[in-house]
C-alpha cells in the first residue's frame, strides 16, 4: 500500500494545527503564527504517535525545552518553572495525540493510533519513513514543528 496523500494532508495539517492550538493552548488569545516560516531552529524534544493500518506513518511534534515547558504550563495551569519532566512528557504527548488523531481522520481508514512517545530528538528515529508534509506553529515566540511521516517497518516490507 502506498501513502499518496501529500497534497490533501498538507492543506489539512495547517488547519488542524490551528484548531488544536486555538482550542488547547489559548492560540486565539496570544500571538500565534500558523504556517510560520521554518527557520530550522534547533529542537530538543520530539513527541510522536504512530499510525498503523490503512495508513502507515507517524505524526511528530518537535520543539525546544522552553517550548515544551510552555505547553505543560498551560495544560497544567502552572508556571513554566514549576512543571516537572513528567508534566512536560505528559503534555507534549497529549499534544501529539490530539494532532495525530485529527490528522488520522483525513487519512485512509481504518487505522489505529499508538500511545504517544516523547524523547530527546537526538535519540528518536523513524527508520524507513519519508516526510509527507510539515507545518510550523510559532507560539510564545517559540517554533513547534509538526511533521507527518509516511512509511515504517510494515511499509518497508512492501517496498514503499
Amino acid at each position: 500500500m502506498t501513502n499518496d496523500v501529500t497534497t490533501t494532508v498538507e492543506v489539512d495539517l495547517d488547519m488542524i494545527a490551528e484548531q488544536v492550538w486555538s482550542a488547547f493552548l489559548n492560540g486565539g488569545e496570544e500571538e500565534t503564527i500558523f504556517a510560520a516560516p521554518d527557520t530550522g531552529a534547533p529542537v530538543d524534544l520530539a513527541a510522536s504517535v504512530a499510525m498503523v493500518g490503512a495508513y502507515e506513518g507517524h505524526l511528530v511534534v518537535s520543539c525546544s525545552h522552553k517550548a515544551s515547558r510552555d505547553v505543560a504550563s498551560v495544560l497544567f495551569a502552572m508556571e513554566p518553572d514549576e512543571v516537572t519532566t513528567d508534566d512536560v512528557g505528559d503534555a507534549l504527548g497529549e499534544l501529539a495525540n490530539v494532532l495525530g488523531g485529527n490528522v488520522k481522520s483525513v487519512l485512509p481508514s481504518p487505522s489505529q493510533l499508538s500511545l504517544p512517545r516523547v524523547s530527546a530528538t537526538g535519540h528518536e528515529r523513524w527508520p524507513g519513513t519519508v516526510e509527507v508534509c510539515r507545518t510550523v506553529v510559532r507560539w510564545r515566540d517559540e517554533p513547534y514543528v509538526v511533521t507527518l511521516l509516511s512509511g515504517g517497518p510494515s511499509n518497508n516490507a512492501q517496498g514503499v
Binding site: A72, L75, F76, A77, D86, D87, D90, A91, G93, E94, N97, L115
Partner: peptide, 11 residues
C-alpha cells in the same frame, strides 16, 4: 491516561 487532560476535564 493524560494527567493534563484529566486536570482540564476535572476543572
Amino acid at each position: 491516561d493524560s494527567r493534563a487532560m484529566r486536570k482540564i476535564l476535572r476543572g
